[in-house]
Design a protein around this nucleic acid. Structure first.
Lengths: 138, 138
DNA sequence: CTTGACCCTGTAGTTACTACAGGGTGTATA
DNA sequence: TATACACCCTGTAGTAACTACAGGGTCAAG
């Protein structure tokens, strides 16, 4: 029923240092201590940390996680705020996917152009160093 | 033929502070100075900075950019090293795309489940806080 | 009773910049 | 000539989200 920081870390897939970090920045409350000054956690903290990690895995930055936590603490609040948060986040994820997809095709093109040989005629280097004419005029 | 740091920044889409930062970490050589102690750049630096920015835009981290630069300086070297670098990078980009795509469908599902109402029955919060049974046993 | 795994605090490092503070320079205008 | 203004200089500290020590204390097993 009571775990050490290491056990909490294993249960949630979080490094011990990260848990202490979350405590330092106020994302987790200061837990009780044992006689030997070890942090002692219960189910509540386990739940809260799981929530944080899951939101983080979904790519929410810590300040949004913080907002999510305080929203979820006030159960009378309207769901719309949370919906908006998630909707914005989804839009961001979609933008990142688009960026990376464009990047992937550029990299593939780069690789196709590499036919071996010495760097003197390596197309990758050429492709990375755009001709002076493509540089905005001063 | 000679530009100030601000002009170089404009020409390459780089902030002045970033250029000074690149100089500090040795990615750009220390440039000549004018009588008034202003940095003075020429075409060589313009090319090198363009190269750096383009590689960065393609998502190469700075230490790989550094590697790319030193490889491209030794024109007798085999193109294979560069090919490998780019190939690894492509694999990473593809992994990120896969991650984000999975994330997108999770977020979409989350949003579909939000039918309004108060947070007490908000499915997003529920979805983020997995049931205790899904937490690895201690 | 000692070894080893774990815990503690506090500080500094990581990546790739970005943002001041507190000054100097260069040029255009009144 | 004065002065306003945009730009430049150095140096330091801040950002996100951890991660990695250093230098100790605690606890269970053999």
């Amino acid at each position: 029923m009571a775990f050490t920081i290491g056990e909490l870390g294993k249960a949630t897939g979080t490094k011990v240092e990260t848990i202490r970090y979350y405590e330092r920045i106020g994302l987790l409350a200061k837990p009780e201590r044992t006689s030997g000054n070890y942090r002692s956690y219960g189910k509540t903290e386990l739940g809260r940390l799981s929530f944080i990690r899951r939101a983080r895995d979904l790519g929410f930055p810590l300040d949004q996680v913080r907002a999510l936590l305080s929203l979820s603490d006030d159960r009378t609040r309207d769901c719309a705020t949370i919906d908006a948060l998630a909707r914005n986040h989804l839009a961001e994820v979609e933008r990142k996917i688009a960026d990376l997809t464009a990047l992937r095709s550029q990299l593939s093109a780069l690789l196709d152009s590499c036919k071996g040989g010495t760097i003197g005629d390596c197309r990758i280097i050429e492709a990375l160093a755009p001709p002076a004419t493509s540089v905005k005029a001063l």
